[in-house]
Write a protein that binds this DNA or RNA. Structure first.
Lengths: 201, 201, 201, 201
DNA sequence: TATGAATGAGAGTTCATTCAT
DNA sequence: AATGAATGAACTCTCATTCAT
């Protein structure tokens, strides 16, 4: 009984926490970290200013928790798309498609992440890279390695190439016009990358 | 006589202006726009706070003037490297080499520019793109077009490909470790891009 | 219960607001709007600088709220004095007596208002006139009109004469020596005005 | 010869000084003392910022010199109008007519003076009263005294009545609508005052 | 747990004044 | 006499954070 009560409470707390994270995503996306306003975030989430501090000790802790949330969701979205096929080429195409899809459907979260990854604050930037380690692993282990083993991709260093692909993904997916539409399309980018990776002959 | 006096004065003013721009580059690079401190900038340049406002009406105007300064210098550095050879492949290699070189030698200016290009402030971002138009033209007209005409590069849309290359350049050149060394090297990146661009066969 | 709590809180807030308005009156009276210092105001009220901005969005909003407060209090003071007698002559004498009384007892508030009414800032000046509309009505409807109807006052245009009387009141009541004592006394002024208004013969 | 040179120089200096005073009048009228900008004033006069300080040691000194200039001109304008007739009633009417005329023709100077007379700065206010002493004398000695001696005006205290008339003049002449037209006209005001002053019977 | 009044450090900007030219 | 670059004190306003309720 007490257990159940506790669970219900936790669920409520999680709801509040999620509401705050969602509102934070929107605000961090629109304004960037420095200009983001804690008051605006809490109000957007339907709470008062002080409530944020019941869940996150500081503004930066809120951002970093958000980044963790985003990175995990982002990773799961990409992974599930990538592993639906065995073909390394298809996987790479899926990677870019799923990536652009994520940016399109989770605009706020994606932009909050872009802003943080490009932040001049080293701590925030590093936290992003940490949180995105699984994504690098995904590229290296689930796309590049199989491709090289099957002789479809030329031999490359998996980690630095994963970094390059990730850079290309982040760079191209984050460039959008004033209406939020990307300047480049994922197939075009995937095609470009595939030509660069394909084994000769 | 008056002319000479005026010229000397203008030279002095330009010196002050340049000192402020240099200090601003350092501060904007280290802190990003929002955290950059006008007082710190002017002191770094050897002046009092108010002096900044004799040269730039607002903090943002200072940033945008700096971006113009950087973009021009950056462009000139790249252009002079690119046009030393007729060979499109060499030109593309030179482009990345000169690019990474610029980032290495003009660290502050380059980082200030990266921060601005990735800013969540649309006005600042747009200003960057405007200021970098010559660079896009350089890629399209001096590298891609000749390469395609000579049958060395496969046919691509020059502008969107220039955008892609620029994105790759900015993305890869801006990724540096804590000591400021790039994670990827220009030849590796140029090689990757060349494989993607080369005409089949 | 919640209602009671809310009421208590509101009462507290009103106390803070009033304390700020009182401190503001003192400061605006002594220094005028431009030289008035928000920090001084909040400290005088027993609060920190930022607290002012929990109640008034800007310095000018604080001034205008104060003007509204003063105008209402001022009007109520004058009205209650005026309507205690039916006699138009007595009413006019009461008007000036109560007016000088208000200035003497509410020195800060009165001076803050004088400063604002004479401000070179049109917006502030206009706000004063708006806030003092009831006072013009009081003069026209409760003093001049009855006086004319009873044949005690000669026929005059009520509104422009109300304006003239108000001008005379403000002008004479605001002239004080270094110790704050008025140069003219209300009975003298009332007598002067009465002679100008009385019906011939 | 040296004398002549000196005179020419003085004339030049006086020209510069006058240009500065005129520009100051405009700025002090529009903005009030605190918001008036020394740079704006000097530029309006066709000089650089520093030039002001060759003629006036401080901003306030500039204001006070301007007040002296205005008070003298204002007085001369009123005096010459007042003394054209021997009739005290005509003199009083002329006083208000000339007064409103001065405000209409020397709008900037008049408004600068109104702003200063109503300033919360005691020093500035007092300086105004000092500078306007001749005007009080004019009212008392050239209008009220003759009127009383001729039995046209009832007996009043000349100085306090002069103060009252001056207050009424300043109050009514300074009230203008957004187009700068006065709300009351001088004859109306003079008529009001005359009724208050006329000897009974 | 949720609230929101209070805090106060900190920032950008203005501008009277100085002074070397 | 005229200039205008440099100065730096002073000000308004913002906002992350605290804490009593």
């Amino acid at each position: 009984m007490a257990r159940i009560k506790t669970e219900i409470r936790e669920q409520f707390m999680n709801q509040t926490r999620q509401a705050l994270l969602n509102a934070a995503a929107e605000e961090f996306a629109r304004q960037g970290y420095e200009l983001a306003n804690i008051n605006t975030i809490s109000n957007k989430a339907g709470f008062a200013k002080g409530t944020v501090y019941n869940y996150f000790p500081t503004k930066q802790a809120l951002l970093l928790a958000l980044i963790d949330d985003i990175a995990q969701e982002h990773f799961e979205h990409m992974q599930s798309a990538v592993i639906t096929t065995e073909d390394p080429i298809g996987r790479l195409e899926s990677f870019f498609q799923a990536g652009f899809e994520y940016v399109a459907t989770q605009m706020h979260r994606a932009r909050a992440m872009f802003n943080t990854v490009n932040s001049s604050n080293q701590e925030q930037k590093n936290h992003c890279f940490q949180a995105y380690q699984p994504m690098f692993q995904l590229i290296a282990a689930q796309i590049l390695s199989p491709g090289m083993h099957q002789g479809i991709f030329r031999p490359v260093d998996p980690m630095s190439t994963a970094l390059l692909l990730m850079t290309i993904y982040l760079g191209t997916a984050s460039q959008v016009d004033e209406q939020g539409r990307p300047w480049l399309d994922p197939d075009q980018v995937a095609d470009f990358v595939l030509r660069a990776l394909r084994a000769a002959g």
